[in-house]
Design a protein around this nucleic acid. Structure first.
Length: 443
RNA sequence: GUGAAAGUAGCUCAGUCGGACAGAGCACUGGAUUGUGGUUCCAGGGGUCGCGGGUUCGAAUCCCGUCUUUCACCCCA
């Protein structure tokens, strides 16, 4: 019986694994050099944990299960609730700021499509306990720092940012009731994905007053932070001014202090679907705009409180591997994510060759090859040999396929204690004494 | 969960007005007088034509169902 792979999952054959590891290693390097520490949690949690901040719709997109004690559990669809739980549990003993990162494997029971699968990896970075917008800027900088290292330039991607606080202030100032804000966010978040006409119609359905609706549209079309004042006109007030000021600071930090201004751009259409964002929000998109967002994040000052903790400010980012990989592939950048691989040494023996030197037990060329391989491995080098007693030419071919940097040939020279060491990229060979060769290698 | 398109070898595909043992390239395995690789040449293995049912003398080909993939919608933590 042939059993197919599960819908929306991937098999990682060695070449795929090399790509996956390359991407994840890049995420980890960027995290560490930006001062984040790694954490992780269990792959399943109480189902209830995902119901706190999410509606039924989202709970339906969970892989849930019941344990033998009848507990309702779910495979994690995100790691932020786990993070909130872990931080809350030890909030009194953790030194601030808490700068943590994780690369969890997540599952969501959504219908798979381009850039979205049912099982994936997601890089998460969070800074907890810092109110200052410097933390928001640092989250964005770390994100760009990674993307830049991966080979993406300001010509490939754009960080689009806005602020929930600004949006809320603007909407309130033009007369939107507090209770309507959340549902309006969901609509505004779709602006970029809907045809202009459709968006206009949907907005009119929700906001009956024509003047109010057109003011919202004017705001959504502002192309710079400073342009917001003009766009909203008389709706300007202190609350709006403060939010504007905050966002300007983030822009200035990214541009002047952190030097990544060319990647960043204000975009009032960035809202984020989730209700829990409270301040700066951002997404990274490909410039062409063909793919869904590469990553998204923002400030969520109330979330830890919602999970039973105190009022602790927090800001963070999540980046999945699926869209990123598509973009890197399109830009021809996948190969450069892969580091190393290949063998340090491939040991070639001469079939049928026997040694009976004094002081050494009688052995074959093949036996000596196994012995040398074991010693090299003991010294921390990657080394391998052929299982087949094929000719030297065949073995060298195998060595090429294995991407070996050097080949060592165990031949007649060994009678004089010598090895042939061949550089596989240049083809050059040298004759070296075996003990001399080994003593040069440090463990 | 809704709608549309596709499914032939590991991969990319050809083959279909229904007709003989189902094809190519790449990849893989083996070989080209047993001590020198990446090239080339030769040979070989590998497919219940996604699966199930129906129409027919006969189905990879036509019809229905189903699964999977892709795309769009819902949603996007």
């Amino acid at each position: 019986m042939k059993i197919p792979p599960v819908k929306g999952t991937r098999d990682f054959y060695p070449p795929d694994m090399a790509v996956r590891n390359g991407i994840i290693d890049g995420w980890k390097r960027a995290s560490i050099r930006n001062g984040f520490e790694e954490y992780d949690g269990p792959i399943f949690e109480h189902l209830q944990m995902y119901q706190i901040k999410s509606g039924d719709e989202i709970v339906e997109q969970l892989f849930s299960l019941e344990d033998r004690g009848g507990r309702a559990l779910a495979i994690r669809p995100e790691i932020t609730p786990t993070l909130a739980r872990m931080v809350n549990q030890r909030i009194n003993s953790l030194s601030r700021p808490i700068k943590w990162f994780s690369v969890p494997r997540l599952c969501r029971a959504e219908r798979p499509q381009k850039g979205r699968l049912r099982e994936f990896f997601q890089w998460n970075i969070d800074i907890i306990g810092v109110d200052d917008v410097l933390a928001d800027a640092e989250v964005i900088f770390t994100t760009v720092d990674y993307l830049r290292e991966a080979g993406l330039t300001a010509g490939d991607i754009r960080v689009k940012m806005s602020s929930r606080r600004l949006l809320a202030a603007v909407l309130r100032s033009i007369g939107i009731a507090e209770a309507e804000l959340d549902s309006l966010y969901v609509l505004l978040d779709k602006k970029g994905r809907l045809p202009a006409e459709t968006f206009k119609e949907l907005l009119a359905e929700r906001v009956s007053d024509v003047g109010t609706a057109s003011r919202i549209e004017a705001f959504m079309e502002a192309s710079s932070v400073s342009g917001v004042r003009q766009a909203i006109g008389a709706a300007w007030n202190d609350e709006v001014a403060e939010a504007i000021n905050e966002l300007s600071q983030v822009e200035r930090l990214l541009k002047e202090e952190m030097g990544v201004g060319e990647y960043c751009q204000f975009d009032p259409c960035i809202v984020r679907g989730l209700a829990y964002y409270t301040g700066v929000v951002f997404e990274v998109h490909d410039i062409v705009g063909e793919l869904r967002a590469i990553c998204g994040g923002g400030r969520y000052d109330n979330l830890l409180g919602d999970f039973g903790g105190g009022a602790i400010p927090a800001t963070g980012m999540g980046m999945g591997d699926c869209v990123l990989e598509i973009l890197l592939a399109e830009k021809g950048l996948l190969d450069r994510q892969i580091s190393g691989g290949g063998l340090d040494y491939f040991i070639v023996f001469v079939p049928g060759l026997k040694f009976d030197g004094p002081g050494d037990v009688a052995s074959t060329s093949r036996g000596q090859a196994v012995r040398l391989t074991a010693r090299l491995r003991g010294l921390g080098r990657s080394a391998d040999f052929s299982y087949k007693a094929a000719g030297v030419g065949k073995q060298l071919k195998q060595a090429s396929e294995r991407n070996a940097r050097e080949c060592i040939i165990i031949g007649d020279e060994l009678r004089r204690g010598k090895l042939v060491v061949k550089d596989m990229s240049t083809g050059e060979q040298r004759l070296v004494g075996m003990e001399e060769f080994l003593s040069q290698l440090k463990p």
